[in-house]
Amino acid sequence: MTEIGSSDLGATPAKLPTSVRRQPGVARLWFYLLLLPPVLWLGLLIILPHIQLFILSLKEKVAPRVYTYGLDNYIGFFNEPLYWMTLLRTATISILATALTLVIAFPVAYYIAKMLRGRTKNLIFVLALLPFWVSELVRTLGWIMLLRETGIISNTLLSLGLIPERVELLGNDAAIITGLVYTSMLFMVVPLINSLDSLDDSLIEAAYDLGGKGVAILREIIIPHAMPGIVAGSIVVFMLTLGNIVTPAFLGGKNSIWFTDQIYQKFIVRFNWEQGSAFGFLLLITSSLVVWLGLKLTRQSLAKTIT
Protein backbone atom coordinates (compact mmCIF):
# COMPACT_ATOMS: atom_id res chain seq x y z
CA MET A 1 0.00 0.00 0.00
CA THR A 2 2.72 2.43 0.90
CA GLU A 3 4.54 1.64 -2.28
CA ILE A 4 1.58 2.42 -4.47
CA GLY A 5 1.11 5.64 -2.58
CA SER A 6 4.67 6.76 -2.99
CA SER A 7 4.77 5.94 -6.69
CA ASP A 8 1.52 7.85 -7.09
CA LEU A 9 3.00 10.90 -5.45
CA GLY A 10 6.41 11.11 -7.08
CA ALA A 11 5.81 9.08 -10.22
CA THR A 12 9.03 9.67 -12.11
CA PRO A 13 11.65 9.40 -9.36
CA ALA A 14 10.11 6.17 -8.03
CA LYS A 15 9.78 4.50 -11.43
CA LEU A 16 13.14 5.43 -12.83
CA PRO A 17 15.24 3.25 -10.51
CA THR A 18 13.10 0.15 -11.16
CA SER A 19 13.43 0.45 -14.93
CA VAL A 20 17.17 0.94 -14.58
CA ARG A 21 17.40 -2.03 -12.26
CA ARG A 22 15.51 -4.14 -14.75
CA GLN A 23 18.09 -3.54 -17.51
CA PRO A 24 20.86 -5.84 -16.17
CA GLY A 25 18.21 -8.49 -15.58
CA VAL A 26 17.23 -8.39 -19.24
CA ALA A 27 20.85 -8.51 -20.28
CA ARG A 28 21.43 -11.52 -18.08
CA LEU A 29 18.38 -13.26 -19.52
CA TRP A 30 19.73 -12.69 -23.03
CA PHE A 31 23.10 -14.01 -21.94
CA TYR A 32 21.53 -17.25 -20.69
CA LEU A 33 19.37 -17.53 -23.78
CA LEU A 34 22.41 -17.18 -26.01
CA LEU A 35 24.31 -19.64 -23.88
CA LEU A 36 21.52 -22.19 -24.18
CA PRO A 37 22.26 -23.66 -27.63
CA PRO A 38 25.95 -24.44 -27.01
CA VAL A 39 25.18 -25.77 -23.54
CA LEU A 40 22.36 -27.94 -24.90
CA TRP A 41 24.54 -29.09 -27.73
CA LEU A 42 27.43 -29.97 -25.46
CA GLY A 43 25.21 -31.47 -22.81
CA LEU A 44 22.73 -33.44 -24.88
CA LEU A 45 24.93 -34.56 -27.74
CA ILE A 46 28.33 -34.97 -26.15
CA ILE A 47 28.41 -35.15 -22.38
CA LEU A 48 25.19 -37.04 -21.71
CA PRO A 49 25.80 -39.82 -24.23
CA HIS A 50 29.34 -40.18 -22.98
CA ILE A 51 28.22 -40.54 -19.40
CA GLN A 52 25.65 -43.06 -20.58
CA LEU A 53 28.31 -44.90 -22.57
CA PHE A 54 30.69 -44.88 -19.66
CA ILE A 55 28.09 -46.34 -17.28
CA LEU A 56 27.18 -48.88 -19.91
CA SER A 57 30.81 -49.85 -20.39
CA LEU A 58 31.08 -50.76 -16.69
CA LYS A 59 28.03 -53.05 -16.77
CA GLU A 60 28.54 -56.78 -16.83
CA LYS A 61 25.88 -59.30 -17.74
CA VAL A 62 25.80 -62.12 -15.20
CA ALA A 63 22.51 -63.65 -16.26
CA PRO A 64 19.73 -62.54 -18.64
CA ARG A 65 18.66 -59.08 -17.45
CA VAL A 66 20.96 -59.26 -14.43
CA TYR A 67 23.89 -56.87 -14.34
CA THR A 68 26.75 -56.03 -11.98
CA TYR A 69 29.33 -53.32 -12.29
CA GLY A 70 33.03 -53.97 -12.95
CA LEU A 71 35.95 -53.61 -15.34
CA ASP A 72 35.36 -56.88 -17.15
CA ASN A 73 34.62 -55.23 -20.50
CA TYR A 74 37.99 -53.48 -20.37
CA ILE A 75 39.87 -56.54 -19.14
CA GLY A 76 38.30 -58.51 -21.96
CA PHE A 77 39.82 -56.09 -24.41
CA PHE A 78 43.34 -56.64 -23.14
CA ASN A 79 42.93 -60.41 -22.90
CA GLU A 80 41.98 -60.78 -26.55
CA PRO A 81 44.97 -59.96 -28.83
CA LEU A 82 42.69 -59.47 -31.82
CA TYR A 83 41.14 -56.46 -30.08
CA TRP A 84 44.18 -54.61 -28.85
CA MET A 85 46.21 -55.51 -31.93
CA THR A 86 43.49 -53.96 -34.06
CA LEU A 87 43.48 -50.80 -31.99
CA LEU A 88 47.27 -50.61 -32.10
CA ARG A 89 47.27 -51.12 -35.87
CA THR A 90 44.50 -48.59 -36.36
CA ALA A 91 46.41 -46.01 -34.31
CA THR A 92 49.71 -46.72 -36.11
CA ILE A 93 48.20 -46.51 -39.56
CA SER A 94 46.33 -43.36 -38.57
CA ILE A 95 49.57 -41.73 -37.45
CA LEU A 96 51.22 -42.83 -40.68
CA ALA A 97 48.33 -41.51 -42.77
CA THR A 98 48.42 -38.22 -40.86
CA ALA A 99 52.16 -37.83 -41.44
CA LEU A 100 51.75 -38.68 -45.11
CA THR A 101 48.90 -36.19 -45.47
CA LEU A 102 51.08 -33.51 -43.90
CA VAL A 103 54.00 -34.25 -46.21
CA ILE A 104 51.78 -34.11 -49.29
CA ALA A 105 49.67 -31.17 -48.16
CA PHE A 106 52.56 -28.92 -47.13
CA PRO A 107 54.00 -28.25 -50.60
CA VAL A 108 50.48 -27.80 -51.96
CA ALA A 109 49.61 -25.31 -49.22
CA TYR A 110 52.94 -23.54 -49.61
CA TYR A 111 52.42 -23.22 -53.34
CA ILE A 112 48.92 -21.83 -52.94
CA ALA A 113 49.77 -19.51 -50.04
CA LYS A 114 53.16 -18.20 -51.07
CA MET A 115 53.70 -18.65 -54.80
CA LEU A 116 50.30 -17.69 -56.18
CA ARG A 117 48.73 -14.24 -56.16
CA GLY A 118 45.30 -12.72 -56.59
CA ARG A 119 42.77 -14.51 -58.76
CA THR A 120 44.88 -17.52 -59.68
CA LYS A 121 45.38 -18.13 -55.98
CA ASN A 122 41.64 -18.15 -55.27
CA LEU A 123 40.97 -20.27 -58.33
CA ILE A 124 43.55 -22.93 -57.43
CA PHE A 125 42.33 -22.92 -53.84
CA VAL A 126 38.75 -23.58 -54.94
CA LEU A 127 39.97 -26.26 -57.36
CA ALA A 128 41.78 -27.96 -54.49
CA LEU A 129 38.52 -27.97 -52.51
CA LEU A 130 36.38 -29.14 -55.42
CA PRO A 131 36.61 -32.93 -54.75
CA PHE A 132 35.24 -32.33 -51.27
CA TRP A 133 31.90 -31.18 -52.60
CA VAL A 134 31.28 -34.84 -53.35
CA SER A 135 30.41 -37.06 -50.40
CA GLU A 136 33.09 -39.21 -48.84
CA LEU A 137 31.18 -42.33 -49.84
CA VAL A 138 31.25 -41.43 -53.51
CA ARG A 139 34.92 -40.50 -53.35
CA THR A 140 35.74 -43.82 -51.76
CA LEU A 141 33.74 -45.63 -54.41
CA GLY A 142 35.87 -43.75 -56.93
CA TRP A 143 38.97 -45.30 -55.44
CA ILE A 144 37.35 -48.73 -55.72
CA MET A 145 36.86 -48.09 -59.44
CA LEU A 146 40.54 -47.33 -59.72
CA LEU A 147 41.99 -50.04 -57.51
CA ARG A 148 39.86 -53.16 -57.96
CA GLU A 149 41.09 -56.12 -59.99
CA THR A 150 39.08 -55.16 -63.05
CA GLY A 151 39.65 -51.48 -62.31
CA ILE A 152 41.32 -48.78 -64.35
CA ILE A 153 44.85 -49.10 -62.95
CA SER A 154 44.98 -52.85 -63.20
CA ASN A 155 43.60 -52.81 -66.75
CA THR A 156 45.96 -50.07 -67.90
CA LEU A 157 49.01 -51.85 -66.53
CA LEU A 158 47.87 -55.05 -68.20
CA SER A 159 47.27 -53.48 -71.60
CA LEU A 160 50.65 -51.79 -71.41
CA GLY A 161 52.17 -55.20 -70.81
CA LEU A 162 53.73 -54.19 -67.54
CA ILE A 163 52.05 -57.01 -65.58
CA PRO A 164 51.28 -60.57 -66.77
CA GLU A 165 47.76 -60.68 -65.31
CA ARG A 166 45.29 -58.47 -63.46
CA VAL A 167 46.19 -57.41 -59.89
CA GLU A 168 43.90 -56.75 -56.96
CA LEU A 169 44.96 -53.47 -55.36
CA LEU A 170 42.12 -53.34 -52.85
CA GLY A 171 41.94 -54.95 -49.44
CA ASN A 172 45.30 -54.00 -47.98
CA ASP A 173 46.76 -51.30 -45.74
CA ALA A 174 48.22 -49.36 -48.65
CA ALA A 175 44.75 -48.99 -50.17
CA ILE A 176 43.37 -47.80 -46.83
CA ILE A 177 46.16 -45.27 -46.39
CA THR A 178 45.68 -43.97 -49.93
CA GLY A 179 41.98 -43.47 -49.30
CA LEU A 180 42.52 -41.90 -45.87
CA VAL A 181 45.14 -39.46 -47.12
CA TYR A 182 42.90 -38.43 -49.98
CA THR A 183 39.91 -37.98 -47.69
CA SER A 184 41.92 -35.95 -45.17
CA MET A 185 43.74 -33.59 -47.56
CA LEU A 186 41.27 -30.73 -47.16
CA PHE A 187 41.51 -30.68 -43.38
CA MET A 188 45.28 -30.38 -43.59
CA VAL A 189 45.55 -27.95 -46.51
CA VAL A 190 43.18 -25.34 -45.12
CA PRO A 191 44.88 -24.73 -41.74
CA LEU A 192 48.28 -24.89 -43.43
CA ILE A 193 47.33 -22.26 -45.99
CA ASN A 194 45.97 -20.14 -43.16
CA SER A 195 49.18 -20.20 -41.18
CA LEU A 196 51.49 -19.90 -44.22
CA ASP A 197 49.49 -16.94 -45.52
CA SER A 198 50.45 -14.96 -42.45
CA LEU A 199 54.16 -15.62 -42.96
CA ASP A 200 55.76 -12.39 -44.15
CA ASP A 201 57.70 -12.98 -47.38
CA SER A 202 60.41 -10.67 -46.15
CA LEU A 203 61.26 -13.16 -43.38
CA ILE A 204 62.14 -15.75 -46.00
CA GLU A 205 64.07 -13.18 -47.99
CA ALA A 206 65.91 -12.00 -44.88
CA ALA A 207 66.91 -15.59 -44.16
CA TYR A 208 68.25 -15.94 -47.71
CA ASP A 209 70.00 -12.62 -47.44
CA LEU A 210 71.78 -13.72 -44.27
CA GLY A 211 73.14 -16.80 -46.03
CA GLY A 212 70.38 -19.38 -45.50
CA LYS A 213 69.58 -22.11 -48.00
CA GLY A 214 66.33 -23.89 -48.85
CA VAL A 215 66.24 -26.70 -46.28
CA ALA A 216 67.61 -24.60 -43.41
CA ILE A 217 65.05 -21.87 -44.07
CA LEU A 218 62.27 -24.47 -44.20
CA ARG A 219 63.40 -25.90 -40.86
CA GLU A 220 64.18 -22.70 -39.00
CA ILE A 221 61.72 -20.16 -40.40
CA ILE A 222 58.85 -21.69 -42.35
CA ILE A 223 58.01 -24.74 -40.25
CA PRO A 224 58.20 -22.94 -36.88
CA HIS A 225 55.90 -20.26 -38.25
CA ALA A 226 53.48 -22.82 -39.71
CA MET A 227 53.52 -24.92 -36.52
CA PRO A 228 50.05 -23.87 -35.29
CA GLY A 229 48.61 -24.87 -38.67
CA ILE A 230 50.57 -28.13 -38.69
CA VAL A 231 49.35 -29.01 -35.19
CA ALA A 232 45.74 -28.07 -35.89
CA GLY A 233 45.68 -29.92 -39.20
CA SER A 234 47.38 -33.00 -37.78
CA ILE A 235 45.03 -33.25 -34.80
CA VAL A 236 41.94 -32.96 -36.99
CA VAL A 237 43.23 -35.41 -39.58
CA PHE A 238 44.34 -37.91 -36.95
CA MET A 239 40.99 -37.81 -35.15
CA LEU A 240 39.04 -38.15 -38.38
CA THR A 241 41.25 -40.96 -39.60
CA LEU A 242 41.13 -42.91 -36.35
CA GLY A 243 37.36 -42.57 -36.20
CA ASN A 244 36.80 -43.15 -39.92
CA ILE A 245 34.57 -46.07 -40.83
CA VAL A 246 33.64 -45.77 -44.50
CA THR A 247 37.10 -45.69 -46.09
CA PRO A 248 38.64 -48.65 -44.21
CA ALA A 249 35.49 -50.70 -44.66
CA PHE A 250 35.43 -50.15 -48.43
CA LEU A 251 39.11 -50.19 -49.26
CA GLY A 252 40.43 -52.56 -46.60
CA GLY A 253 40.08 -56.30 -46.59
CA LYS A 254 39.70 -59.06 -44.04
CA ASN A 255 43.31 -58.63 -42.97
CA SER A 256 43.04 -54.96 -42.29
CA ILE A 257 40.13 -54.41 -39.96
CA TRP A 258 39.73 -50.92 -38.52
CA PHE A 259 38.93 -50.55 -34.82
CA THR A 260 35.73 -48.64 -35.59
CA ASP A 261 34.58 -51.74 -37.43
CA GLN A 262 35.02 -53.76 -34.24
CA ILE A 263 32.90 -51.28 -32.33
CA TYR A 264 30.28 -51.47 -35.06
CA GLN A 265 30.34 -55.26 -34.84
CA LYS A 266 29.84 -55.16 -31.05
CA PHE A 267 26.91 -52.77 -31.20
CA ILE A 268 25.08 -53.85 -34.32
CA VAL A 269 26.02 -57.45 -35.01
CA ARG A 270 26.64 -58.90 -31.54
CA PHE A 271 24.29 -56.51 -29.80
CA ASN A 272 26.89 -56.34 -27.01
CA TRP A 273 26.43 -52.67 -26.14
CA GLU A 274 28.41 -52.98 -22.93
CA GLN A 275 31.63 -54.07 -24.55
CA GLY A 276 30.99 -51.77 -27.51
CA SER A 277 30.85 -48.85 -25.11
CA ALA A 278 34.09 -49.94 -23.49
CA PHE A 279 35.70 -50.09 -26.94
CA GLY A 280 34.39 -46.65 -27.71
CA PHE A 281 35.98 -45.32 -24.58
CA LEU A 282 39.25 -47.02 -25.35
CA LEU A 283 39.27 -45.33 -28.76
CA LEU A 284 38.66 -41.97 -27.13
CA ILE A 285 41.45 -42.56 -24.62
CA THR A 286 43.85 -43.68 -27.35
CA SER A 287 43.22 -40.64 -29.54
CA SER A 288 43.57 -38.27 -26.58
CA LEU A 289 46.78 -39.98 -25.55
CA VAL A 290 48.30 -39.82 -29.04
CA VAL A 291 47.36 -36.13 -29.43
CA TRP A 292 48.79 -35.34 -25.99
CA LEU A 293 52.01 -37.21 -26.80
CA GLY A 294 52.28 -35.48 -30.16
CA LEU A 295 51.91 -32.06 -28.54
CA LYS A 296 54.52 -32.94 -25.91
CA LEU A 297 56.99 -34.22 -28.49
CA THR A 298 56.69 -31.13 -30.68
CA ARG A 299 56.63 -28.84 -27.59
CA GLN A 300 53.36 -27.29 -28.69
CA SER A 301 50.22 -26.54 -26.77
CA LEU A 302 46.59 -26.42 -27.80
CA ALA A 303 46.37 -22.83 -26.56
CA LYS A 304 49.20 -21.79 -28.89
CA THR A 305 47.47 -23.50 -31.80
CA ILE A 306 44.23 -21.66 -31.26
CA THR A 307 45.67 -18.18 -30.85
Binding site: S202, A206, A207, E220, I221, P224, H225
Partner: peptide, 9 residues
Protein backbone atom coordinates in the same frame (compact mmCIF):
# COMPACT_ATOMS: atom_id res chain seq x y z
CA UNK B 1 64.26 -4.69 -44.54
CA UNK B 2 61.58 -2.02 -44.65
CA UNK B 3 59.72 -3.79 -41.84
CA UNK B 4 62.92 -5.23 -40.34
CA UNK B 5 61.92 -8.91 -40.83
CA UNK B 6 63.27 -10.06 -37.48
CA UNK B 7 62.50 -13.74 -36.90
CA UNK B 8 59.75 -13.88 -34.25
CA UNK B 9 60.41 -17.58 -33.61
Amino acid sequence: FQHLALFPM
